[in-house]
């Protein structure tokens, strides 16, 4: 079966610094894959390469078997590859309502409508309502995003990704810095994702990783160290060495 996502010998150099070296990943449909590694291992670089924010120095990225290395970031979103950001990237001057409305409109292909007033499509509206409910954003939906509490902003960050109906979801430390209550909400929503959605999770919190993932890749200094099922990875002496040898910063 064609994997949903595959990278072949992906490389990224910044000047002389090698941020990603010969990275080969393979995610089958419906996979719950975690990418872990110490700080500075290049995890976010990988996400940026996958989503097209960065151009790879060499190597290939395949989505459903098709090379997307030269596809624009927004087109990758339309192909179903959606990400969340480790540091919130939101529209500070818009409300959650408008932000989600935008994302839904874009997905439905009506985002470029320049004559129809915003908010007059019932399909868009119903979906926004649904998302606001699921992410407990109803009470703040008309506030300016920039002034929302951090927990709510984090929920909106995840909700924006869900609004794009991902087939492949890249989660970059989704629960980082979130108060416990919202943390549970986020994790529950991620756990409740349909089986046919493929997930790549970057996470420091090993509890989350081991409860969620069915496969784990360990990235160290831009290189894949180990890949396998959780139990196998946990036993691997090299992984232990990496995590024991350095400050464990989960």
């Amino acid at each position: 079966m064609t994997p949903v996502l595959e990278t072949r010998a992906l490389e990224k150099h910044f000047g002389g610094v090698v941020a990603a070296s010969q990275v080969s990943l393979r995610l089958e449909k419906g996979a719950r894959h975690a990418l872990i590694g110490p700080n500075g291992a290049g995890k976010t670089t990988i996400i940026n390469l996958l989503t097209g924010v960065l151009r790879p120095t060499s190597g290939e990225i395949l989505l459903d078997g098709k090379d997307i290395s030269h596809v624009q970031p927004y087109e990758r979103v339309r192909l179903g590859m959606v990400r969340t950001f480790q540091i919130n990237q939101l529209f500070g001057e818009l409300t959650p309502l408008e932000s989600l409305g935008l994302a839904v409109s874009e997905r439905l292909g009506t985002g470029g409508d320049w004559w129809r007033r915003f908010g007059t499509r019932s399909s868009v509206i119903d979906e926004i309502g649904d998302l606001l409910e699921r992410f407990s954003l109803v009470d703040v939906m008309r506030e300016e995003t920039a002034i929302l509490p951090y927990g709510k902003q984090r929920l909106l960050e995840i909700a924006l990704a869900f609004a794009c109906r991902p087939r492949l979801l890249l989660l970059d430390e989704p629960a980082a810095g979130v108060p416990d209550l919202e943390r549970q909400e986020i994790l529950a929503t991620i756990a409740a994702l349909p089986d046919d959605v493929t997930v790549l999770l970057i996470e420091h919190d090993m509890d989350i990783v081991f409860s969620f993932a069915d496969r784990i890749s360990v990235l160290v200094n831009g290189e894949m160290l180990v890949e396998g099922p959780p139990a196998e990875v946990a036993r691997d002496p090299r992984v232990r060495a990496v995590y024991l040898g350095e400050t464990f910063d989960a």
Binding site: V77, S105, G111, G112
Partner: peptide
Amino acid sequence: SPFGLSLLAIKDNSLRAAAVGIP
């Protein structure tokens, strides 16, 4: 319109705008 709002979104944060599929 949705188009106009997407402009505000781009001005606000073009990285995110692309990440929700805005060309």
